[in-house]
Design a binder for these strands. Structure first.
Lengths: 208, 208
DNA sequence: ATTATAAGCTAATTTGGATTAGCCGTCAAG
DNA sequence: CTTGACGGCTAATCCAAATTAGCTTATAAT
């Protein structure tokens, strides 16, 4: 990997751990194995490194997301998969989603960096909401609606059903980001959550 | 209000909006109506202002929490209230919880400050998890269990039921913290959530 | 071979923001 | 009435961290 990429990589790690303001240029440089002034051969400023990361994130998001059924580009294909889904398959999907989020180092570092930076910057705040709240809800909502149409799930209000599916995942995710020691427990809870979700909505339970 | 308290108040506002590192001592002072050096007549350092706020937060948490049934000190009394709860009453409780969280300026600013600071400090991270994840889950879980015993709600797994109750509230709360414009919508969603929660668990729906 | 460019280094320099020094008015206690 | 603590101010000072200057080496193109 060339120096410029290494700088981005180490900066991402540091920003995601400590936040932009608490990271020194010299710290990034040291991890890359160069001195701070040398970093300026590759980037105009510390801010420019950060901006490049945000740029990179925006470029890669669609790619990652499609891969994971978080928000989709090939909705029709995904929906077909969801049509006849057993409980175990549903659990597997939820687990894969959470575990990807948690373990993919790239996604994880970006998420943490963004969640911090979003507190200071309006644009980033919108990006955060889009990527981790609105898009997951809308995409998963679409899939779950297919399952409702197919008679696999039953509800009068699919939006709330989607919230009931995703909110616990979101909460577990943010909990693990703040305290990685909770991962094992989170995966167990996730499985129970989806199992119970499936029991709750798998029969005509919430209709009047 | 005396100067020292005003410093704390303005510092809390600023820290909660921009994060510790992005707030200047001169900024706090200006809002209070003094010059930066004068602030040092009241606090040893910028850090000391922050620490005093954390101190204050720890002191006040039990008080606030008890007031709101988030985590309790008079569990028996609260449980009695929950014994025979109509859907509307349940909705009101959820709404009150969310609206207090959202609108009480004190609670709100502390929460935002803590959620940011928690990314940099292990102790604060633990405090955040306790106050906004573990305590609400355990206290609300206790209340919901009473409702299960009383036959108002039905479930095999009250922990997951509690997660299903609280996770959407948590998600809406953090969403509103990041984007206050979502408040109105959030309150509507909350009401629908609790209504559907009540339908889902109000009958013997998730038992095998 | 020569030269230009890329990418590193050390040694400044700059800068912004926290903190200190030292002065002044007010006011309550003796 | 005077003294001393309190709380404010302006004008330094300090300092860490970002950035710039200017030198050096390697490599690749002419």
């Amino acid at each position: 990997m060339d120096t410029k990429s290494r700088i981005l990589d180490e900066a991402l790690t540091l920003f995601s751990e400590k936040g932009y303001a608490n990271v020194f240029v010299s710290e990034i440089a040291e991890r890359v194995g160069i001195k701070a002034p040398s970093l300026y051969k590759h980037f105009e400023s510390k801010k420019a490194v950060f901006d490049a990361l945000i740029q990179e994130m925006n470029n890669n998001f669609l790619k990652q997301a499609g891969m994971l059924h978080i928000q989709g580009n090939d909705a029709a294909r995904d929906a077909a998969i969801y049509k006849n889904l057993s409980e175990d398959q549903l659990i597997k999907l939820g687990k894969d989603l959470l575990l990807y989020f948690l373990h993919d180092d790239y996604a994880r570092r970006f998420r943490k960096m963004l969640s911090m930076a979003a507190y200071h910057d309006k644009e980033l705040s919108e990006a955060y909401m889009k990527h981790y709240v609105d898009d997951p809800l809308s995409y998963q909502g679409m899939l779950l609606k297919v399952m409702v149409q197919e008679g696999v799930l039953h509800t009068e209000n699919a939006e709330i059903m989607t919230l009931h599916f995703y909110a616990p995942i979101y909460m577990l995710l943010t909990a693990c980001d703040r305290d990685p020691a909770r991962e094992t427990e989170a995966v167990e809870i996730l499985e129970k959550h989806i199992r119970q979700f499936n029991r709750l909505y798998g029969r005509k339970a919430d209709e009047k």
